[in-house]
């Protein structure tokens, strides 16, 4: 999957969690850039992404992703070429 495909899915997951459909994540987005993206929403987001892409992150990874781009790259590295649910 391309970066853009993954970003679109991640944006949808976070948008549903925070109740804000306008959220559009970019590779350089950090948690500080998105109001309300607290530690709780972050864990939910990570598990949402794991489920969607069929991957599993290590706890140490989860804590140290510096930005959304790092998550996208981790998904690309781990993930089988899945077709996410529409």
């Amino acid at each position: 999957m391309t970066e853009q495909d993954i970003l679109a899915v991640l944006s949808r997951i976070l948008g549903e969690l925070l109740g804000d459909d306008a959220i559009a994540l970019a590779m350089t987005t950090t948690r500080e850039d998105v109001p309300g993206w607290d530690s709780f929403a972050y864990i939910n987001f990570i598990v949402g992404a794991e489920t969607e892409f069929g991957v599993k992150f290590k706890v140490a990874e989860v804590e140290s992703f510096p930005d959304v781009g790092a998550i996208v790259r981790a998904i690309q590295a781990k993930g089988p070429p899945l077709h996410p649910a529409p």
Binding site: S39, F40, I43, N44, I46, V47, V59, V62, E63
Partner: peptide, 8 residues
Amino acid sequence: NPLSLALT
């Protein structure tokens, strides 16, 4: 994080 991740 580890606790919440495991529970979720």
